[in-house]
C-alpha cells in the first residue's frame, strides 16, 4: 500500500513522458503494439528513445546492445546502491523480480526511505509506475495515429524537454556537470554535421564517454558530491 502511494506521483510523470514516447515510436514507423512491448520490456525513457531511433535507421544489433549498455549503465550503480538497503525478506527470486523496475525515479524515492526496503513496498511502487509508463505509451501511440500531425509534431519535443529538465538544474549548481554536458553537446553536434557517416547511436555513446571521461579526470567527485 505504502509503495503504491509513493508510486503515484512517479506514474503521473511517466504518463505524459511515455505519451510522447508513444507518439515518437509511431512516427518512427513502429506499430502501437510494438511501442507498448518496448515500454513493457524496458521501462526506461532515454534507452527506449535511443532504441527506437536505431530501429528507425536500421542500425545493427551490436549498435543496439552497446547503446543500451552505455545509456542504461547508470542503473547498475542505482541497483548496487539499493542492494545495500534490502530487507532480509528479499530472496534471490524477489531480487530478480524487483530489479526489473529500477528506474531513475524509483531509485530516487526508494533510496531516501528510512530503514530497509521490503519486497511489497518495491513491488507496489514499481507496479503503479509501470501502469503509468505502459498506459501512456499506448495512449500516445494510438493518439499518434489519428491526432493531427501539427499536434504530434509538437509532442515530439516532450521527451527532450524532460531530458533538459533533468540536466540543467544540477548543471546550474555544479560547474563540473555544466562542463560535462557542454562537452557532450559540442561533440554530438560535431558528429551530426562533420562525421556524418557515424550512426546516431554510436555518436551519442562516443560523445557521452569522451565528456564523462574528461569530467572524471578533471573534476573527480568525492563521496559527498555523489550523494546529491
Amino acid at each position: 500500500m505504502h509503495g503504491l502511494m509513493h508510486g503515484i506521483p512517479i506514474a503521473l510523470g511517466y504518463l505524459s513522458v511515455s505519451f510522447g514516447f508513444g507518439i515518437m515510436a509511431v512516427k518512427s514507423g513502429l506499430s502501437p503494439l510494438e511501442a507498448a512491448i518496448i515500454s513493457i520490456t524496458n521501462l526506461t525513457s532515454a534507452g527506449q528513445a535511443a532504441g527506437v531511433s536505431i530501429i528507425a535507421t536500421g542500425g545493427s544489433l551490436f549498435e543496439m546492445a552497446v547503446t543500451q549498455f552505455v545509456i542504461n549503465i547508470r542503473y547498475s550503480l542505482m541497483s548496487l546502491s539499493l542492494s545495500q538497503k534490502l530487507d532480509k525478506s528479499f530472496s534471490p527470486l524477489k531480487r530478480l523480480i524487483a530489479s526489473y523496475g529500477i528506474t531513475d525515479e524509483i531509485f530516487a524515492v526508494a533510496s531516501v526511505q528510512d530503514g530497509k526496503l521490503k519486497p511489497a513496498y518495491m513491488y507496489g511502487m514499481i507496479l503503479i509506475a509501470f501502469i503509468g509508463w505502459v498506459g501512456g505509451t499506448c495512449a500516445g501511440a494510438l493518439a499518434g495515429e489519428f491526432l493531427p500531425s501539427i499536434v504530434t509534431d509538437a509532442m515530439g519535443i516532450v521527451l527532450y524537454g524532460m531530458f533538459l529538465a533533468i540536466i540543467i538544474p544540477p548543471a546550474r549548481k555544479n560547474k563540473s556537470i555544466l562542463f560535462v554536458i557542454t562537452i557532450a553537446a559540442v561533440i554530438s553536434v560535431i558528429f551530426k554535421y562533420v562525421f556524418t557517416s557515424v550512426s546516431s547511436g554510436f555518436a551519442v555513446i562516443i560523445s557521452a564517454l569522451i565528456a564523462a571521461i574528461l569530467g572524471a579526470l578533471l573534476f573527480p567527485v568525492d563521496d559527498k558530491e555523489e550523494e546529491q
Partner: peptide, 18 residues
C-alpha cells in the same frame, strides 16, 4: 566519477542537436 557523469553526458548528447 565516470559513472556519476555518464547520465548527464548521455542525456546531453541525446538531446543536442536532436
Amino acid at each position: 566519477s565516470l559513472l556519476y557523469y555518464v547520465p548527464y553526458a548521455v542525456l546531453s548528447a541525446m538531446t543536442i542537436p536532436a
